[in-house]
Amino acid sequence: MLKPLLDFEKPIAELDTLIEELKRSAANDERRKAAEHDNVDIESEISRVEERRDKVMREVFANLTPWNRVQMARHPMRPYTLDYINAICTNFVELHGDRIGADDPAIVGGFCQLNGQTIMAIGHQKGRDLKERQHRNFGSARPSGFRKALRLMQLAARFRKPIVTFIDTPAAEANLMAEEEGISRAIAYNIQQMFHLEVPIVVAVIGEGGSGGALGIAVGDRVIMMEHSIYSVIPPESCAAILSEFGRDRGRASDAAAALKLTAQHALQFHIADSIVSEPLGGAHRDPIAAARVLGNAIAAELKELASVPTPVLLDARYKRYRSIGSWEEIEREALIVPVPADHVEGPMP
């Protein structure tokens, strides 16, 4: 299968191909002998090229632009929610349906075990091939998806099982049917009700944190972001298309991506994410198992910490966490005449 590649991955992929070729030679007696005859040691040649590839990779990934991060977050090879659940958890039993009239494949969820402890895992699910992508609606949830998610979260809370949500959506579905079925209310109600859930909630942004569609299952006590994930109020393409600052040109999405400060690193800086999970060099898709292991450990560590927090304290902290998000200033009346900023508040207040 031909692997889809981003432009900046191409030099890396070329070296990958070379390494694969060398490895094939190493496994082939005839070619091996030919190489020995030419005084070439295939093994050391392999490690030489590998070193070079890793060097190139380090250079490329040290210089990712915000737009490159968007591309990484949307990478078609990137592990998706079910990949992580299957890698991290055991005994996953998927639970379907909103009990109103539909089951939305763009959101999956169910009970499973993480390090032997039962949790409720819920997440947006994208599809890998064209058929599955359409089936999953590209990870864009409908009202029934959000309602299913809330049903599962409330179920988990009743049985005192912590909740882990995986965030990976371009946006919520916005077509006629979604509007008729109350997509706005579904998102809003989820966000509100998540403040009442009497169990720990850990949110892991694994790919695209796409505005309201992400937030509808992303109110948590801890928010973890994968190194190459993003979290944004609007897709950079739409932002560029709307604003004259970007010439109302979708093609200038990279400028909008920079202006929106939508990377995991920014979210951490704004105190909206609590931690960033490092990905394998080159991104999670280069070593999904390793990526899942690191993410699984991070989630488990947060759950362990939250387990000892008494419920009222937990809910109060959750309220305060979101209550304090924002950046504004409070101005004295007189100062309105001569606008001198005073008392600039940024991020959570002490």
Binding site: Y322, I325, G326
Partner: peptide, 18 residues
């Protein structure tokens, strides 16, 4: 949500809902 404030304004959805 006011996009000029990026993630901060997205999070106001959660803040007001809280």
């Amino acid at each position: 949500a006011r996009m000029f404030e990026g993630l901060y304004s997205l999070m106001q959805m959660a803040k007001t809902s809280a």
